Simulated assay, not measured.
Amino acid sequence: MTGRKDFLCDLKLSPNADYVTYVNNSNSQIRGYGTLNNGNFSISHFAYVADLKHNLISVAQLTDSSLRMEFCKKYSYVMTEDRKECFIKSLCNKNMFPLDVNMIIGKPQHCLLSKVVPDVSWLWHRRLAHLNFRFTWVFFLRLKSETATELINFIKGIEVLIKFRVRRIRSDNGSEFVNSTIEKFLTEKGINHNIIAPYTPQQNGVVERHNRTLVEAAQSMLNYANLPLYLWAESVSTLSMQ
């Protein structure tokens, strides 16, 4: 139960719902039921009691949601039934076991919730961000001088894969794209090289916007997971494979 309406998504109010009786024999009406979501798992049919001052949850309600609850002297754990993943580890406080959990406030944006099991939807959202990215080939280079080799190999490979010839490429005016090695290859293949004017990235807007989207989404994933920035390549690679 919770007194915070903003903790619940898909809240359905029930004017004729039951009452909750406290130890002092006072009672409060259950105003409705919704889904409680912290990003790792969700609990459905969670009661909303308007004047409740604390959030209460029963072990049975967790286990009914296909979760496993374990206790030891200092900690409590909420995990999957097979114990392969621990969602919450909470410290005992004066013989009480409060759940150390940050709830998602408000109703989440339904970017992929409609087709995914609720208790894993936000886990996949954090892993893959939004699913409206287009598929992208990304190559990570230590030096700009590696660009020519990677580009030539990519063009050769993609022509075999899709069984069509590459007719045109577009790039900025950087020396990694405008050099004798690449120009010789493109001339031999009959590929037109469209070079944008210097300092005008708006002429290559699709690539620039998509690159920015990938970089910002990768940074968000790393920040949320508290991972070091040197893993940005793995993060970008994960995003580009959608």
Rank of each mutant, 00 (worst) to 15 (best):
G174L: 06
D119R: 14
L128I: 00
C9E: 15
V207I: 13
N24P: 06
N24L: 07
K163V: 06
P228I: 07
T213I: 12
T149K: 15
S58N: 08
D100Q: 11
K156H: 08
F135M: 09
F41P: 06
P108F: 04
N102A: 01
N40G: 15
I152C: 05
A217P: 03
R167T: 13
N27E: 14
L151S: 05
L113F: 09
P228L: 04
F87P: 14
D172S: 02
F177V: 06
V49Q: 07
K144Q: 15
L227N: 02
S58E: 05
Y230G: 03
M103N: 03
I57M: 07
G190Q: 08
F140C: 14
V207Q: 08
N223M: 04
E81S: 04
K156F: 01
V206Y: 09
A148D: 13
D64I: 01
A60C: 03
E208H: 04
S171I: 07
Y199E: 09
Q202E: 12
F139I: 04
F7Q: 09
L161W: 01
V49S: 14
R142A: 10
L11Q: 14
T181W: 01
L36T: 08
L52P: 09
S180T: 13
N211F: 09
K53Q: 11
L113C: 12
K84P: 02
E216W: 00
E188H: 09
L11K: 04
F7S: 15
W124R: 12
F135C: 10
K94Y: 02
P228N: 10
T2K: 01
S66E: 10
G205L: 07
K5L: 01
R212W: 05
Y48E: 06
N132R: 10
I155P: 06
S220A: 13
E234F: 00
V78A: 06
W232I: 15
L52V: 08
A47P: 09
N37P: 05
T213M: 12
R83D: 08
A60V: 08
S44T: 15
H130P: 00
K89N: 12
H45C: 11
E159Q: 13
A225T: 03
Q29G: 04
V120M: 03
I182G: 13
K12N: 09
N226Y: 05
L141G: 15
K73Q: 14
Q61D: 12
F139E: 15
V59K: 13
I88Q: 11
G106R: 11
E234C: 03
